[in-house]
Amino acid sequence: MPASGRRARGEVQSRTEQQIIEAAWCYFKDDMSQADIAARLGLSRSTVVNYLALARARGYVRVSLHPEIFRQREIAEELKRKFALKDALVVPGQPDDPAADLLRVARAAADWLPELLTAGDRLGVSWGETVYHISTEVEAIAIPGLDIVQLVGSRATPLGFAAETCSANLATAFSANCINLHAPLLVQSSDLAEMLRREPVIAAQLDAIRTCNKVLFAAGSVGSDSHVVRSGVVSEATLAAYQARGAAAVICGRFIDRDGNPIPGEIDARIIGTTIDEMRGKELGLLAAAGADKTEPTRAALRAGFTTHLVTCSEIAAGLLADD
């Protein structure tokens, strides 16, 4: 449906832009044909077509597919039964274009997320490329009394998917209160981490994490090109040690095995952020996963028991339903 324009308040709209907005309203809201719009506005049909394209390009119109279409698909129902999910959303994958595949999943999750939130919720938000794209694709919808909480500390990364950016983007879109975690994700020693956790400001932010009733997260892979390696959270040597102990996924900077059990390690005491145990027991645990290489991390996250809702691509869904 038409969204409000991004023009500054008080700026005069040109006649052409008024017609673009009117054409978009008639087409998407009033369900008028392009021919009828052309007659109403005194334009050619080709001009109406161009105006509708401009309305979408300028962000005046957001067209989304209703999640119910995908939730009713048999594969989603099978995922719900197999992993005891409340709901699942499967979108057609694009295996030949990983970037497009990820963006398709992110957009589906972004369209679905507002339906899963209610006034007064406290949503914990993790980090990473998938969560970042969800935060940029979500529609601006005000949700009264909503808190958006950063689940893990900050980490300078060349990838551009900082945790505070993800939470801030969602807070802006939902006109929500943003509670960032003003501490590094990983510090040099466990003693320093403990001191920071006792700082009153950080302690209050960690308490906000514990009281989240809903969480949005992604499952990271444990390959040499994984997010935690490229971001410098762990070295390749440390990653190899976790792999030797059966690591299958990374959740909020912490490793779990293929059955979803935490794999304790020395970095756990140096991480400032949510724990695997704190992820459990939420009203909503929304996991978004794209790309066939994320099949095993997704399976591990599902077995961990804190996912209630899943958004994924058809390749991952097929892999999850295949025999182990």
Rank of each mutant, 00 (worst) to 15 (best):
A269D: 14
A300H: 04
V91G: 08
D96Q: 15
D121I: 12
P114L: 04
L302M: 08
A203L: 07
A322I: 01
D121Q: 08
L117F: 08
L206S: 06
A142E: 14
S314T: 15
C178R: 11
V61K: 11
I134G: 04
E283M: 02
V250R: 00
L287T: 07
W25K: 15
N50A: 14
A292R: 13
P92R: 07
A247Q: 05
G220P: 05
R107C: 10
D268L: 05
N169K: 02
P264K: 03
N177I: 06
I316Y: 10
S154C: 09
A289V: 07
D257T: 05
K80G: 01
A176P: 08
K80I: 15
S154E: 15
A208K: 05
L123Q: 09
L170Q: 02
Y242M: 14
L284R: 03
G42Y: 13
D225K: 15
L102G: 10
A55L: 10
A237C: 00
V48S: 07
Q19V: 01
I271A: 02
Y242K: 06
G273S: 03
E68Y: 03
H309Y: 05
G120T: 03
L123T: 10
E22H: 15
F174K: 07
R7L: 15
A249L: 06
L116K: 10
S224H: 11
A119F: 01
L85C: 09
G124L: 02
G223V: 07
V138E: 11
E315R: 13
Y60M: 13
L216P: 10
A84T: 15
D30Y: 10
V91D: 03
L89N: 10
S33R: 13
D96V: 00
A173V: 02
L41F: 12
R56P: 00
G285P: 12
Q243F: 00
K294F: 08
A288P: 02
L52D: 07
I148Y: 04
A88T: 11
A248D: 02
L206Q: 05
S224W: 02
A173K: 13
T211F: 04
D324I: 01
R107W: 00
L43P: 01
R230Y: 07
N169V: 03
L192R: 13
L286K: 01
S189N: 08
I148P: 09
Q13N: 06
